[in-house]
C-alpha cells in the first residue's frame, strides 16, 4: 500500500498563513538579520559601492567600532539622546497609559450621557485618524509665530516678551511639545482599550458599590481601577515598546512639516532637543549616511526592547499577557 496522502485539513491552514509568513520574513526577519549584520560593519556612503560588492563575503570587515562609539561615549551626543529618549518614553507613557486611564474613566463612567461620551471619545481619536503629515502641519501652524496659540496668548494678555521666539525650537517648550504632540495621538490607543473594558464591567458591580455607600469617585478608585488591572498592564507594556521605537511624529513635525530635507533634520532636532534614540538612528542612516553606525544604534534599541519583553512576560506572565485584555469578573 502506498503512503497515505496528507489530509487537506492539515495543509489548508498553512496555505492560508503562507502570505503572512512571507510578509513577516521579508519585512521583519530579513531586516532584523540585516541590521545585526550591518551593525558590526562600517558601511557608510563613502564605501557603499565597495561594500556592496563584498556583501556576505569574507572580505567584509567586521568591527566593534560602532558599539565603542555608543557605549564609550566616543559619540558625544549619545548621552543626550539617551536622556531625551527617557524623558520622551517616560512622559508619553504617562499620558498614554495613565492620563488615558483618567480620561477613559471620565468619559466612560462620569459622563453619563452616551452622546457626549461618544463625541469626547471621537475627539480623542481625531489625531489618530488624521493623516500624520496633516496632523504635523496643523501643529506647525498652531504654534507658529503668528499662529493660533500665540494669538490666544496675546489675547489673554501675555506680554510679547514672554513668548519664546519659536515654540518648536526653544527648549524646554520644544520638548514639552514633543510630549504633547505624541501623547495626544497615543492616548487614544489606551482609551479604546480602557473604555471597552470599563463598559464591560457589569453595571451590577457599580450599582452594588453605590448602594454600599461609595461616591462616584470612590467607585472609580476602588472598583473600576482595580478591575482594569490587566488592561492597564497590557497598555503599559505595549506602549513602552512601541514608544521606544517610534519617531515618525517627531520626524514629521520637526522635519517634513517644516520643509526640512532629511539632511537638515538632525540639526533641527538637536536644537529643539527632540532627537530620540530611534530618530537618531534614522538620521545617522539617512542624513549622515552612516549605515553601519545607524544599524548599531537600532540594535541597542532592539536589545533593550527584547529585555523589556522578557521583563514584562516575567512580571505579568506570558500567557496572561497574550490573552485578550480582559476584566476579571
Amino acid at each position: 500500500m502506498s503512503k497515505l496522502p496528507i489530509p487537506t485539513y492539515r495543509i489548508t491552514p498553512w496555505l492560508f498563513l503562507t502570505p503572512l509568513f512571507i510578509m513577516i520574513a521579508l519585512a521583519w526577519i530579513g531586516p532584523l538579520f540585516l541590521t545585526v549584520y550591518l551593525g558590526f560593519t562600517d558601511l557608510q556612503l563613502k564605501n557603499f559601492i565597495a561594500f556592496i560588492k563584498d556583501f556576505f563575503t569574507p572580505q567584509v570587515h567586521f568591527t566593534l567600532d560602532n558599539f565603542r562609539r555608543i557605549f564609550l561615549a566616543q559619540d558625544p551626543y549619545i548621552p543626550e539622546v539617551a536622556r531625551i529618549t527617557m524623558i520622551y518614553v517616560g512622559s508619553v507613557l504617562a499620558i498614554n497609559a495613565f492620563f488615558a486611564l483618567v480620561l477613559s474613566i471620565a468619559i466612560a463612567y462620569f459622563v453619563k450621557s452616551e452622546l457626549i461620551s461618544m463625541s469626547l471619545r471621537v475627539s480623542w481619536l481625531l489625531p489618530r485618524i488624521t493623516p500624520g503629515i496633516v496632523y504635523a502641519l496643523m501643529w506647525n501652524w498652531f504654534v507658529s509665530r503668528d499662529g493660533m496659540f500665540n494669538l490666544l496668548l496675546r489675547l489673554a494678555g501675555i506680554p510679547e516678551s514672554w513668548l519664546p521666539s519659536n515654540w518648536l525650537l526653544d527648549k524646554p517648550y520644544s520638548q514639552l511639545l514633543m510630549i504633547i504632540v505624541n501623547g495626544y495621538i497615543g492616548a487614544s490607543f489606551g482609551m479604546i482599550v480602557y473604555t471597552a473594558a470599563i463598559k464591560s464591567i457589569p453595571p451590577d458591580l457599580i450599582n452594588a458599590a453605590l448602594v454600599d455607600g461609595a461616591s462616584e469617585f470612590q467607585v472609580a478608585r476602588r472598583i473600576i481601577i482595580p478591575l482594569l488591572k490587566w488592561p492597564i498592564m497590557f497598555v503599559t507594556a505595549w506602549q513602552t515598546l512601541s514608544l521606544m521605537a517610534s519617531y515618525d511624529v517627531i520626524l514629521m513635525v520637526w522635519g517634513a512639516a517644516q520643509g526640512a530635507s532629511p539632511s537638515e533634520v538632525l540639526g533641527i532636532t538637536k536644537v529643539a532637543g527632540v532627537t530620540v534614540w530611534s530618530l537618531y538612528a534614522y538620521t545617522q542612516a539617512f542624513s549622515q549616511y552612516q549605515y553601519g553606525y545607524a544599524a548599531a544604534i537600532s540594535l541597542v534599541l532592539v536589545a533593550i526592547g527584547l529585555g523589556l519583553i522578557v521583563f514584562y512576560f516575567k512580571v505579568f506572565g506570558f500567557r496572561r499577557l497574550m490573552e485578550p485584555s480582559r476584566v476579571e469578573v
Binding site: D204, L205, P226, L227
Partner: peptide
Amino acid sequence: QSYALYPH
C-alpha cells in the same frame, strides 16, 4: 441577582 461581589 448576580450577587455583584467585587471580584478583586
